[in-house]
Design a protein around this nucleic acid. Sequence first.
RNA 1: GGCGGGUUGCCCGAGUGGCCAAAGGGAGCAGACUGUAAAUCUGCCGGCUCUGCCUACAUAGGUUCGAACCCUAUACCCGCCA
Length: 422
Amino acid sequence: MTDIVDELKWRGLIALSTDEDALRKAFADGPVTFYCGFDPTAPSLHIGNLVQLITMRHIQNAGNFPLPLVGGATGLIGDPRPTSERTLNDPETVAAWVLRLRGQVERFLDFEGPHAARVVNNLDWTSGMSAISLLRDIGKYFRVNTMIAKEAVARRLNSDAGISYTEFSYQVLQGMDYLELNRRYGCTLQTGGSDQWGNLTAGTELIRKAEGKSVHALGTPLITKADGTKFGKTEGGAIWLDAEMTSPYAFYQFWLNADDRDVANFLRIFTFRSQEEIEELERQTVEKPAARAAQRALAEDVTTLVHGQEQLDRAIAASKALFGQGDLTELDAATLDAAVAELPQAQVGELASIVDLLAATGLVPSKSAARRAVKEGGAYLNNAKVTDEEAAPTEADLLHGRWLLLRRGKRSLAAVELVRTA
RNA sequence: GGCGGGUUGCCCGAGUGGCCAAAGGGAGCAGACUGUAAAUCUGCCGGCUCUGCCUACAUAGGUUCGAACCCUAUACCCGCCA
C-alpha cells in the first residue's frame, strides 16, 4: 500500500500540515486515531464538506480510525466568518441539524470492521461544563495575544463589524475538542479545511501545553476554480449532499459542467480513481474536449458516491433525454416521465401564457424576468425558441397529452404538467 | 454611562430636498460564438394588469407642493472615552 501521506499529496489534499515527517512516522508506527469536525450550520452538508469526508475515507482506507465529529456545541457558537458576525441558531434547530448531519456523515465512512469509525458530538463534553471550569482548566492555556493573531479573528478585529466574545471564543472550544478526543480515544490527528487552520492549531497547542504531547494537524486546500469564482456555488446556491435540497440530477449536472481546466483536479480530489486513470482522462480532455470524458467520469463517480448507483442511472437517463438532439415528441412516455421527474415542476389547471408558465415553474423569479427572458431570446418551449411574449401553448404542444418542457437559456429546464380537473 | 459615526437594491458602495427605481463596481441572467466548457463581445438586471402604476434607501411618525436626502422617536451596529 502506498504511503497515505503520499497518496493525499498527489491528490492535492494537503495544503498545510504541522510536521509532515512526524506524521509519516506516526502512520508508519500503527493505526492513528484522527478526527474532523462538521458544524451544524445548515440542514445538510454541502460539497465543500465532501473534501473532508473523502480525506477521512482515504485515511481510514489506509488502516486508521476516524472520529467524525458533529459540532452540537460549536454549532451553537459559530466560527468567525471573515466578513461579519453570525446570527445564532436556536438550540432546537441545531439539535435537529446535528441528527441530519450525523446521518450524512455515516454514509461516507466504514462503521464496521477493524477500523470502524465512531461519530462523536462535542456537546457531550461541553454541556455539563461550568464557566469556571472552562476559564480555569482550559482558558489558562490560551494566550490572548495568540488568539487575536489568528487570521479569522484578526480580520474581524480590523473590520468595522468587530467580533463578539462568543465567536472569539470559538477556537477555545475547538481546541478543547481535540484535547478531549486525545484523552478519550488517543486521537493524534485532526484534519480540516485550511481556512480552519487556526482552529486546528489551537488544539495541537492546547494538547502540547496540557498534556505535554505533540500531535498532528492536516489542512486540506481551499478548492479553487480556474475562472476564479467560488467553488460549489451555482445560481441556485450551494450544492448540497441532501437529495431533497439538491436533486441527484442537479448534482450530476453540476459536475458534468466542470471547466476543462478544473476537471483533472476535481478527479483527484473527489474521486478514488488512480493516478493512471486520471492521467488518461486528462489526455482525453486535451484530445477530444467536446466528448468531455473526464467530466462524465467525475460526475458519475461523485454522484454514485453521494447518491448511489440507482440515482446516478436516473440522472444520466434524464440528461440524455433532455439534452439529446432528438425530437422531444419522439420520446416515449416512460423516458419522458422519468426525465421530467428530475426537473422542477409546476402543475397548472389550464394552459396559460408562456410568461406565466415560466414564472410558475420558478425558472425565472418573476413575470418581469420571464418577459425579459423571452425578449432576449432565452426562452424555449419543447426545445423551440419562443419569441412572442403573448404566446400561449396549445393542446397540440403537450407532450403525451400532459407535459410541457420549458427551458431558459441553455441548460435550465423545468416541466409543466397540465392537470385536468374533471 | 458619555460623546461621536453609521444603517441604501443580492453584495460592496455613491447620492444629502425635485433631473432617483437611485451613479459605479462585483455577483447573477440572456444572446452571439461553442462542447450543457472557458475566454471575448453585446444586452439585461425591484414588481405589476408595463408608454403607466405600485413598492423600495433600518423602523415609526413629522415638516414640505415634493424626502433616500430635513426633524423627532425607536432598534441595531461601530469607534472613542469613563
